[in-house]
């Protein structure tokens, strides 16, 4: 095998161990050395390409599928609810009773259910930086200007089909869940909801709704104030 062909073959695939390559290496020590050097280079290349993958990444992917399925079921339930509501409406219940009911239960109730469904999947030891949070928060026009508590989870999620942000903070052993939901989600903001052993509250601005959920014993209201005071909202 001539030198040029040999080099081209090895550059294209340093791991090539075809019989002609082996023979060429046995017959010519320079070729054998060239192949060895290129295999070393390939190790460096592999090292450079193998960037770090977020911790528990497979679990996050599985969780996303789980939530996606839940959202689809929720949509079906919403359709059923809508049909039932239409029938009730047809028999004479006024819209003034129906619409406040929808508007005061959807956003936070959904948020609490969403949070509960993935409690088992939130990593316990992760710690995200402010920059990592802001890289995602920026999409919703927000910037977290200061650390409030340790961030143990931050990921985009589907919130009734709308791309939203899910953040879990941890402070003195207590978890605080925050959802940022775009205004075009079709859900209305509301004041406070208690569901199971959680309390959720929300805050609306020009760009998004922010839902804050804590355990009942804690104060979601206080957390909402703390968090909202540290987020600057300015849509790019």
């Amino acid at each position: 095998m001539d030198d040029l062909t040999f080099r081209r073959r090895i550059y294209a695939d340093p791991q090539d161990s075809g019989s002609d390559i082996k023979s060429a290496c046995s017959a010519d020590s320079k070729k054998a050395k060239f192949k060895a050097d290129m295999m070393d280079f390939d190790d460096k290349l592999k090292n450079a390409l193998m960037i770090d993958v977020p911790e528990n990444y497979a679990d996050r992917v599985l969780l996303n599928k789980h939530l996606n399925s839940k959202n689809n079921k929720s949509k079906i339930n919403t359709v059923r609810w809508a049909v039932a509501a239409s029938i009730i409406f047809a028999v004479g219940i006024s819209t003034s009773i129906l619409y406040p009911l929808k508007n005061t239960t959807m956003l936070i109730s959904h948020a609490i259910s969403h949070m509960e469904s993935e409690l088992d999947h939130i990593p316990t030891n992760s710690n995200y930086t402010l920059e990592q949070v802001n890289a995602k928060l920026a999409e919703f026009g927000g910037t977290l200007v200061d650390n409030i508590a340790a961030i143990k989870f931050v990921s985009f999620c589907r919130f009734e089909g709308t791309r939203s942000l899910h953040i879990v903070m941890s402070d003195k052993g207590e978890d605080v869940t925050v959802f940022i939901v775009p205004k075009d989600s079709g859900l209305s903001s509301q004041s406070t909801v208690s569901q199971n052993r959680y309390v959720g509250t929300s805050l609306s601005n020009k760009f998004a709704d922010m839902v804050v959920i804590t355990e009942e014993k804690s104060s979601a209201e206080d957390w909402k104030k703390r968090i909202s005071s540290k987020i600057n909202w300015q849509k790019a």
Binding site: L49, M50, I51, V53, P54, Y57, A58, R60, V61, N64, K65, N68, A135, K136, E139, S155, F156
Partner: peptide
Amino acid sequence: YSKDLYRYAYWLCRDANVVDDIVQETFL
């Protein structure tokens, strides 16, 4: 394969912020 796909997406799309989205959507 999720790790390999994450790395592949990272080098493919050159935007660290969208890598996760692409991989998640791929698996869905």
